[in-house]
Design a protein around this nucleic acid. Structure first.
Lengths: 228, 228
DNA sequence: GGATGTGAATGCATTCACAGCA
DNA sequence: TGCTGTGAATGCATTCACATCC
């Protein structure tokens, strides 16, 4: 696995790997010990062959006649995805979405920890956000909003490698540049713009409008293309 | 265009169509009158051939020697995506993410309008959320949280066809079932679970963990696979 | 010259189908 | 028998390359 050449792996396969992990964790919560490619596939509407092929890109994890041991496969997939270690993550943008992300407490279980929050607005800088209602008693985290000028220092000091970008569209590219400059290795962009970053920086985007437009397109025609 | 068979169109092409639209609107704001497939492609890191092929799935919109008229192409793409009309959208889940979505005011410009919000929590029902700071003066919208029991009635009365699902994972499937029952045609799911819905219902999912895991995978190897 | 639209060629990803193992 | 892992076959999507038009 450590000799894995990730550029030989189909991108869609990596995406599905995350979904397999999510389902496996669900199976484990239900105390399932093993799962077959068929069962795992069905739970996600993929074929069994797809599941086996995807997993086989990364190694031989299964047991013929038995399936995959749930615990074991979870550990393997986490290792492949790199989430068997904890990633420190920073957030830029303490607006509405930013606050929702600060309040979200599903990060830790997935191997991510939000450790710093930045914003350009002087009115917000230095203010403390949180702790948030609904967070577990053990997890009364809160964040002091930092100015962008501290991006590099904080990133280096805290060994942060991933960033979530939740700023207005017209600020996004500039912030992205500064993130790269600060040494960030991957950016999750929620701003509705296409960012330019050096090719060695991992980039992922979530655009609400794009998502809704897909639905709009499909929903317009679902009546027609219904077979039954 | 109205005779378009959307099942003949590659799914990735539809996704890119949304991105083209976003870029076109950007070009228009900069008062560009026409744009070539090459320019449009470059702005998104696609090839010019990709852009032309994608657009050609839907019709002949370009002018040889000139390119595409920005205004015209925007109108065409909107029509294809179905966002030349306004879609009423409902939201289920008035938690942190739900609140961020209520406060978001980019919906209207894209052809969507959030018109109703539901939650299962009796403590929230009947309460008014908003208006939200940062919204334009003309747009002081607010929402009275409705109980799920009103899902069907509200959906029908207001002609709502799309839903955004922002509830905890363990409630998501049940809510999805009720949305389908209420006559919803498309669901955007933010809960980290795989939903089962009838195939004629359009479904799109955004899972924060999945997004971050992709970055984690890529960032782990970006140092290795750097060519320069 | 500068651009589109599009068949043909290529390249990827998915699916099939089966040998081999528990 | 039940299931994995995997080459071979298929099916999609992307890219090429060029006829066509302004």
């Amino acid at each position: 696995m450590d000799q894995l050449r990730p550029d030989l792996v189909p991108h869609p396969a990596v995406r599905r790997l995350s979904l397999y992990l999510r389902q496996l964790e669900l199976f484990r919560r239900k105390d399932r010990r093993t799962v077959s490619s068929k069962q795992l596939g069905q739970s996600l509407s993929f074929t069994d062959a797809q599941v086996r092929k995807d997993l086989a890109y990364f190694g031989q994890f299964g047991h013929p006649g038995v399936g995959y041991r749930v615990d074991d496969l979870i550990a393997r997939v986490r290792h492949i995805l790199g989430t068997d270690k904890i990633w420190s993550v920073l957030l830029v943008g303490a607006g509405n979405l930013g606050r929702a992300l600060m309040a979200y407490n599903g990060f830790d279980a997935k191997g991510f920890r939000l450790v710093a929050v930045f914003d350009a607005d002087p009115a917000k800088i230095g203010k403390r956000q949180g702790p948030f209602p609904g967070s577990t008693p053990a997890d009364k985290r809160s964040f002091v909003i930092q100015p962008l000028s501290q991006l590099k220092e904080t990133t280096e000091k805290q060994g942060i490698r991933l960033a979530i970008l939740a700023v207005p569209a017209d600020a996004a590219q500039e912030v992205a540049d500064r993130l790269v400059e600060a040494g960030i290795r991957g950016i999750l962009n929620f701003a509705p713009v296409s960012l330019n970053v050096p090719h060695e920086i991992a980039l992922n985007a979530v655009d609400l409008a794009v998502q809704l437009e897909q639905l709009s397109f499909l929903a317009n025609f679902s009546a027609l293309s219904r077979p039954a």
